[in-house]
Simulated assay, not measured.
Amino acid sequence: MLTAALYGAATAVPLVVGAAAGLRWRIPQAALAALMSFGAGTMIAAASQELFGPAFEALDAVRAGIALLGGAGIYVVLSHLLDRRAGTSAVGMGLLLGAFLDGVPENTALGVSLGEGGLALLVAIAVGNTPEAIASAAALRDDERLGPRRGLALWAAVGVLLTLVTVGAHAAGGAVSPAAVAVAQAVAGGATLAVLSDTLLPEAYREGGWWVGIATALGFWLAFVLG
């Protein structure tokens, strides 16, 4: 149980540290765009290699596809509602929502797979989510209704929840069927693809221009190296 808590905390701490950095310092737009596109590259690799790939092997194509589209649909609908209500914080809240939606299945898989390649998944999660947290916090800091303290509290809450998910999944052990984990992974893959196409990459391109494609490819390559 202690090991599961440490693994869960190891995925949460980079999120909170990244959010704190984005809230504390005003990062130049070019550097922020590079971080966002780099994180997008790692998330593309994670969606195919760590999430949908295993789900597609464990499930039939129809069930895997339904779960994938379900995850994408959940994010798109919630992101649309945020766009209408969150105002200037819509981008930051959208990235936080994406981190939570794909983080829960990722950390569930991490908790179940401890001792069976869990370390590789841990590194992939931390590397992929940290730029997302930095970018989200940088957007949230300019929202007068939230402010740095509330923005950091939101990311800290996400970190705590993801740690608890890891511990809970590990404690459940054999009670979590491989099929259930596969469905969760496919849902997370869909949510990841949606946050990339709906929020992360458009915002990175708007701030950084055409060269962000290089940073995206670099993040994609690094994720495969770590995987």
Rank of each mutant, 00 (worst) to 15 (best):
L69P: 12
D142V: 13
P148Q: 01
G18P: 03
W221Y: 15
A12G: 08
T42E: 01
L32D: 05
S48R: 08
W211I: 05
A4F: 02
G128L: 05
A217V: 12
I44A: 15
E207I: 08
L59C: 12
L161H: 05
L110P: 14
L35I: 10
L59G: 11
L68E: 02
I134S: 00
F52I: 11
V112F: 15
A4V: 08
T11C: 00
V104R: 05
L97G: 10
T11Y: 02
G65P: 09
R24G: 04
P131D: 01
G103W: 12
G92E: 06
V127W: 08
A180N: 05
A5Q: 06
V181C: 09
R145S: 05
H170G: 09
R149D: 11
A223L: 14
G94Y: 02
I74T: 15
R85K: 14
R141G: 07
Y205G: 10
D60Y: 11
L81K: 03
T166G: 09
L6R: 01
G98I: 14
G39T: 12
I44Y: 01
I44K: 09
I66E: 00
P14D: 07
D102I: 08
T166S: 02
T216R: 00
D142W: 15
A171E: 13
E57D: 14
A20N: 04
G87V: 07
L82G: 10
A19C: 03
G227M: 05
A184P: 01
S177L: 12
A34K: 07
E116W: 10
W210K: 14
L2W: 15
W210V: 13
W211Q: 04
T11K: 01
G118F: 10
